[in-house]
Design a protein around this nucleic acid. Structure first.
Length: 452
RNA sequence: GUGGCUGUAGCUCAGUUGGUUAGAGUAGUGGAUUGUGGUUCCAUUGGUCGUGGGUUCAAAUCCCAUCUGCCACCCCA
């Protein structure tokens, strides 16, 4: 018989892994709630018309598409099959797809339910998303995003609060991170100044690689994209900015003096840094002009978070998008949000060995099973213990004690209650601490006190 | 989507220039110990060597395809 398997880039989660994952989800959820976000869910599948065209050309390729039910092949005639144009055929045989992120479905949700929503609307959402990417370490085809977004408010206070959310989540998870900040308007300003506005995507993609491939290679790539040498020369002082955030902004202000949009981006960042100052942010927040982000719906602030001590892609990201609801027919509703990548955070915590000991949602007490008579008494005791909120279970079979003890040991259960003939005759139980190996004879009433 | 590496018991890995019946540790199960786990000792289950083809008298070993995991690019959480 062939071993069963699961699709590439997907995973099963064991009880131990789920306990750790729930620790991450719980932490993020708590912080979201602290800042006034409320939870929603949306379906795993969306209409392809909702998803297509929101993530750029690459994104469309990475969408999982779902075949229409019924005789989907009948929708395509022989000539179309023979033309072998995948895009055209796909459009006829698939009208649904798996969600690629949570932001676009959220924008759809806002537009669809606008009459029930009070703006500004703060929502959070923790659900899996799917991408038909080629898997690698920290890159899966099914993974969870934890998003918090505010729509219907232009205030930069939202950006500031979201940065606080990010800082607080990673403070609680005890992961040291660097929060990188940029503004799409600055990138537009740069393109404007060097007279290459049509190439803004090429420019941002190229300078995004600066710390990876170096200045010379970036310049070479810009040249192959048809950027003039004069423009590339103009770009150099901007790429080579030095100093702290304030110094960089000051230099940028001079460089982009002729670009109103660039100046606006700078002023937005200045405001954010200014408001952030008294808030005792623990992690480093730095201006990073090379931060471009591929998602092309961002229009203002761009945020990306990197773990300081673990080599992995970004573990969190986000930004402001002014027109996302516009494509669904609701204009002038600006949104801003952040997204946490739970699966990568899991990998980081594992590598840092930073999961707390107490994350287990484990059984606290195991009652050994000595047979029918003992079992009856154990069950009533179990009941009262569970009423106090303590996780407790009884071994379901009256097998050898050795085997039952081993079960407790394997499951890391800290307390074992021994309740056999001897104990019943004396009206007590024997309580064993599995870590120290100590045993105590206690009355039924004392039992709970000892466990707590 | 492009290029590269990889795959032997549940897990970690041996396996000679292709040569009889593929090994070890660990985990599992049973026992030493019919009211005591994590240490010890004994016994024992478990593999059509990722899958499918091919070359050969003979393939875990060589060749091809395919799947998986990983790495780089692309992109991103």
């Amino acid at each position: 018989m062939q071993q069963p398997s699961i699709p590439k880039g997907t995973r099963d989660f064991s009880p131990e892994e789920m306990a750790k994952r729930n620790y991450i989800f719980g932490t993020i959820k708590r912080v979201f709630q602290l800042f006034g976000f409320r939870q929603i869910e949306t379906p795993a599948i969306e209409n392809l018309s909702t998803l297509m065209g929101k993530y750029g050309e690459e994104g469309d390729k990475l969408l999982f598409k779902i075949l229409n039910s019924g005789d989907f092949a009948g929708a395509v005639d022989t000539a179309e099959w023979n033309a072998q144009n995948s895009n055209k055929i796909t459009a006829k045989i698939a009208e649904k797809g798996l969600r690629y992120d949570l932001t676009v479905p959220f924008a759809r949700y806002v537009v669809q339910h606008r009459d029930q929503i009070t703006f500004p609307f703060k929502r959070y959402q923790i659900q899996p998303v799917w991408r038909a990417d080629r898997p690698q370490k920290g890159r899966y085809r099914e993974f969870y995003q934890c998003d918090a977004d505010v729509v219907g408010s232009d205030s930069l206070l939202n950006e500031v609060e979201l940065l606080q959310v990010v800082d607080e989540v990673f403070r609680r998870l005890q992961i040291a991170v660097t929060i990188k900040l940029n503004n799409r308007k600055i990138l537009s300003g740069i393109a404007q100044i060097i007279g290459a506005e049509e190439n803004i995507i090429d420019i941002t993609v190229a300078i995004d690689k600066l710390d990876k491939i170096g200045l010379d290679n970036v310049n070479a790539e810009l040249a192959t994209k048809g950027i003039t040498q004069a423009a590339i020369d103009q770009l150099q002082p901007i790429l080579l900015l030095q100093g702290d955030n304030a110094e960089k902004l000051a230099q940028l202000k001079m460089a982009l003096a002729a670009s109103p949009i660039g100046l606006q981006g700078i002023s937005e960042l200045e405001t954010i840094f200014e408001w952030l100052k008294p808030l005792s942010i623990q992690n480093k927040v730095e201006l990073d002009l090379t931060l471009a982000r591929g998602l092309n719906y961002y229009t203002g602030a761009i945020i990306e978070v990197k773990a300081n001590d673990v080599q992995i892609g970004s573990i969190s990201g986000g930004g402001r998008y002014d027109n996302l609801t516009g494509v669904f027919g609701l204009e002038n509703v600006s949104g801003v949000g952040v997204s946490f990548g739970a699966d990568r955070i899991y990998d980081v915590l594992l590598q840092l060995n930073a999961f707390p000991e107490t994350v287990s949602e484990n059984t606290a007490v195991l009652f050994l099973n000595f047979g029918l008579q003992e079992q009856a008494i154990a069950l009533t005791l179990l009941n009262t213990i569970r009423q106090t909120g303590i996780n407790a279970e009884i071994y379901p079979e009256a097998t050898k004690i050795k085997k039952q003890m081993n079960y407790a040991n394997q499951k890391n259960i800290p307390w074992v209650v021994i309740l056999g003939e001897n104990e019943i005759n004396q009206g007590v139980v024997t309580l064993k601490n599995m870590q120290s190996g100590e045993q105590k004879v206690v009355s039924h009433e004392q039992l709970i006190e000892y466990i707590v």
